[in-house]
Design a protein around this nucleic acid. Structure first.
Lengths: 199, 199
DNA sequence: CGAGTTCTTTGATGCTTGTTAAAAGAACTA
DNA sequence: TAGTTCTTTTAACAAGCATCAAAGAACTCG
């Protein structure tokens, strides 16, 4: 063996460059050239590390999902009681503003998932993971007597995730009628109804 | 004036061809050629009627929104009482199956809206229109005494639309954990809670 | 019927982009 | 320094969009 393998680093570098490109230019009409420019190398080099743009974007997606989930898990863990945790969970799922990089990425790359099974699988895991966090918070609150759940915790959790996705979708598409702030209020209202606790 | 103007017909023909192309091949990597092939003409002809693919897709979107909204309005109008109307409204908002053409179209073209203000405006109208229908149904039911609303009708309506969008998004991305049927049950459960009527 | 007018379609052209393969270059070892 | 492996670039090729001029089609009016 001679020259050391820096492929891992280079790939990470490219994934970061691709992420910036997607946020800046959007998926539609994203060129290989945009990514290679952002990474400061030739387009041929990008293809040395990834078979094509799709595969690179798949990695961008995987990384975004990872970051999103761990951020939420940590946000929840940081809070002491179930009520605060539920509030933290709701707040961490919505874009901070319509330009929230991570959320834009997640919704933008959804267009790939519809055609790419591997990317779709990543979305499924994302969904399950989020439902899981909500279920854990709801169950904990129910066990401690803080929540009086009006329904099965899984059903509530699924609706909470669906609400997030619905509002998040609108927010990143710049629908002005529902600001992230208002979306959070809406979801909190739902959660309040289903748990019997004012949020 | 000499040869009659068939531009309107030809545009409609192209919009239909584009719709089929989007559903079949997806937005990512959709080529002008795909559309022109589907329409049975050369790519140059497509550009005679539309400045570019984006503008054509914008029309596809506009038409899809139109069809979607009127279909729901009619589904609601066909029912006699508020309870049946609410049920019909919920059912008409979700994809019949993961291959529901209209729904795929609506979600797929969302990727354009994020970059194209005109398309985003169309989405805003779509959202407002759906909220409006739900509000009308809820208010009618409230006035007649059929519903005992737990919240402001607009807030309930917004959450219903957000739930639809969230679940619809998952369904068209082939998330198997939430089938259209199950999504409908979830949303009905929410509506039941907020109206006090079992659906 | 044919000349004129307007609408429609095509096909050639130039330009940009994705893809491939070969060669050059860089980093390290023995 | 020679050899090996990893990385990058470059040039060539194929495919796509955009433009435009020219051909073709449909109809009216003289």
């Amino acid at each position: 063996m001679a020259r050391p393998n820096r492929a891992h680093e280079r790939r990470a570098h490219l994934i970061a460059a691709a992420r910036r490109s997607v946020v800046e230019r959007g998926l539609l009409g994203l060129r290989l050239r945009d990514v290679s420019d952002a990474a400061g190398m030739s387009s041929g080099s990008v293809l040395y590390y990834f078979p094509g743009l799709t595969e690179l974007l798949r990695e961008v997606h995987r990384e975004a999902v990872q970051r999103f989930c761990t951020a939420r898990e940590e946000a929840v863990r940081a809070e002491p009681d179930p009520v605060a945790r539920l509030r933290a969970m709701i707040d961490s799922g919505l874009p901070d503003d319509p330009r929230d990089e991570l959320c834009i990425l997640l919704y933008e790359l959804g267009a790939i998932a519809r055609r790419d099974p591997e990317c779709a699988a990543e979305y499924i895991r994302l969904y399950e993971r989020q439902v899981g966090i909500y279920v854990a918070v709801l169950e904990a609150g129910s066990a401690s007597g803080a929540f009086a759940l009006r329904q099965d915790s899984t059903m509530i959790a699924r609706n909470l995730v669906a609400l997030e996705d619905g509002y998040g979708l609108h927010a990143t598409m710049a629908v002005p009628t529902v600001s992230p702030d208002e979306a959070a209020r809406q979801i909190r209202a739902y959660a309040s109804t289903m748990t019997g606790v004012h949020l």
